[in-house]
Amino acid sequence: METLELTQEEQFQARIDADIRIEPKDWMPDAYRKTLIRQISQHAHSELVGMLPEGNWITRAPSLKRKSILLAKVQDEAGHGLYLYSAAETLGASRDQMLADLHSGKAKYSSIFNYPTLSWADMGCVGWLVDGAAILNQVPLCRTSYGPYARAMVRVCKEESFHQRQGFEIMQTLCEGAPTQKAMAQEALNRWWWPTLMMFGPADADSPNTAQSMNWRIKRFTNDELRQKFVDMMVPQAEFLGLTVPDEKVQWNDTKNGYDFGDVDWEEFWNVVKGNGLCNQERLGARVKAHEEGAWVREAAMAHAEKRKARG
């Protein structure tokens, strides 16, 4: 009887609160749909653009083994992008429109990929740190309230842990190598540490949408909670490698049972988000070029399929 008195939106929230997944044809508030399309497509775009900094190193990987691994990792990222685009499409978004928004700069992707990958050690840092941060973001999303998104994330997370481990292995190999190799690892860590901390997004106080997203269970931890977890995980791993994270304020704090650390440079963060990072133009340029140069292939495949269908 009681449920009859609830509005559609209250019933929806009650299902979320009871941890019942929402599926594509279920009723949902417009804002939930819009927020999810934005979040999932941004995530898909990040996978797509995320291939570029690594693609840069495929031809220059130091061995055939490393080249094969890197190729497999980049192929996974294409796959992750596809899982996520199809999850967004179940909400009514069109693939073409999502790509058009990426290419026009209207849609965002993770700013981390607007930093350059200068040395082979950067492949180590991208796997170890960047994918490590991504995993922390993604594991809770396996329980997110929207079914197709959660299922896509389960698949992504299963594959992502290989990415992180191969990155750590690259770092470990360098750190156990010649002093110049270890110096290269430290130099890469110095450049990637802070941008990686920025991956969790603005501080909670500056993240006005967090409360609503947590309420809808499309976000399960706040940005600052995840950032703290990341620092707590990574500082001991850096110590194991014999490397130092580039933050003098990093210090164990017994009372909070975690590390204290310095302030993120939010000015840099917003500057890169606004398009002024070192590689924003290069990344988007490469993406648009690939899309445009592939247009004839897409058209030819469609024409071929239609011709065959007509022939019966």
Partner: peptide, 23 residues
């Protein structure tokens, strides 16, 4: 397991192999 875009059934099966059965 999910969905994908393809011009025809043959391509859909090939793409499905690459997207959904890499392991």
């Amino acid at each position: 397991v999910g969905s994908l875009h393809a011009a025809d059934a043959e391509m859909a099966i090939q793409n499905a192999r690459d997207v959904y059965t890499r392991r």
